[in-house]
Design a protein around this nucleic acid. Structure first.
Lengths: 227, 227
DNA sequence: CAAGTATTCAATAGATATATTGAATACTTG
DNA sequence: CAAGTATTCAATATATCTATTGAATACTTG
């Protein structure tokens, strides 16, 4: 047991064991698909347990348990307001680490690369826009930037200049966007399919549209780092 | 099962599940203390299974099994020469990710921070030198830099200007180092205790000595990034 | 090709992680 | 304070992970 190593003086082997045990404990907390999805959701802004349940496949008890694991490993923090408990990521250092892991996995694990390419292909969003390219397009003022996440997430933070058009709205009542400007749709991140769906619908309706490779959290961290 | 999702077209939920499963699979491969120690050893340069066994607590069968797990997850690669199998990390992108994880854990997990401080305190090496500070000291030419790892690791790569004094040598026959220059000892990284032991011995013998906060792999990555 | 060495395989028991279920708690509002 | 709602707890069966053991394989060298 980890805490049992808390004795006065440690020999070298005990020190190493304690450090590697602690590191492994953190990684174990991350090494679960449901918890990874929760992390991605919380990187959009704080959410109640119900908020997590609505945007994932999890039921209440299950979501709550996974959130406890994340909390016990200092990955998320909880805030109580009225009868609700709002969870959020502890800090941006963690978000930066999570994004590094995701970026590595997508670019270095062939299996994941292949799955991602097929997803993008099926949704006509293979030709995704990178964050750097987006910046250039914004500076040239020839882009209409759509945030297709739920409006609550948009309100927690969004890319400067983006317009909020949640997917249900986009599907029910296709607005008349200008066909002059190129449209770029973005959502929660590379694993989020909302932007893929938006690209599919819009391109089938004759718009010139691409998705952003990444999502709002990646844009946010990039802004922070360039300061 | 991960591979079973390999069907022609995926709905959004299936895509997300496949991506998070794949990400979790990678993290599970990392989430084990023995494998983390192996990774740290391999970040010093390639090693045979026997090399791993000698520098860890593992027996052959166990080390071999963990190495298979790492290989199946594209974390290490194997090269066969004569009767030996030499393992090494796949690439520097992975090493960079590993170091990010370790750095995060040490600075953001209170428990690990505490254990590390006690270790450094016990070995009189609390006042460690950072990589930036070391660079300044080297430029001012007022430092004797000791690499206290086994000489094989020194030969795979070492900090420019460092002298190889493996721990056994240092312990058996304390050389007459100049007492004018400050000594800085370094080893495999922040979880390695060799430099701590070196600091302890040397400072008890009247030398002005500190350890490097990090190790050779961290120095190497920093060099790569500044290009 | 026989002997020796390095590594891997296969089987297994014990430990740990996970989803599910139903109940308990805590808080708010009328 | 009663009723309703959000969240957590506790128990459990199943699945997965891990260390250990003894044997098998693969390669080299004499």
């Amino acid at each position: 047991m980890f805490a049992a190593r808390n004795i006065y003086k440690m020999k070298g082997r005990e020190f190493k064991d304690a450090m590697y045990d602690g590191l492994a404990k953190l990684l174990k907390a991350l090494a679960n698909p449901a918890r990874l999805e929760i992390i991605e959701m919380l990187s959009q802004g704080e959410k109640s347990v119900e908020g997590i349940v609505q945007t994932t496949n999890l039921n209440f008890a299950n979501a709550s348990q996974h959130l406890q694991v994340l909390k016990n490993n200092n990955i998320v923090k909880a805030r109580k307001e009225k009868q609700y408990v709002f969870y959020s990521l502890v800090n941006n250092e963690f978000l930066s680490l999570y994004q590094h892991i995701a970026r590595y996995a997508v670019s270095e694990i062939a299996e994941l690369e292949r799955i991602m390419n097929r997803q993008r292909d099926d949704n006509k969003s293979l030709n995704a826009v990178g964050l750097d390219e987006l910046e250039t397009m914004i500076n040239n003022e020839n882009v209409l930037l759509l945030d297709v996440r739920p409006s609550a997430e948009y309100e927690f933070g969004h890319i400067t200049g983006a317009v909020s058009v949640p997917m249900p709205d986009l599907l029910c009542c296709l607005k008349d966007f200008s066909k002059d400007k190129e449209i770029v749709a973005y959502c929660r991140g590379p694993f989020c399919v909302l932007a893929d769906e938006a690209v599919k619908v819009l391109s089938e309706n004759g718009y010139k549209v691409r998705r952003l490779d990444e999502g709002y959290p990646e844009w946010k961290m990039k802004q922070l780092e360039s300061n």
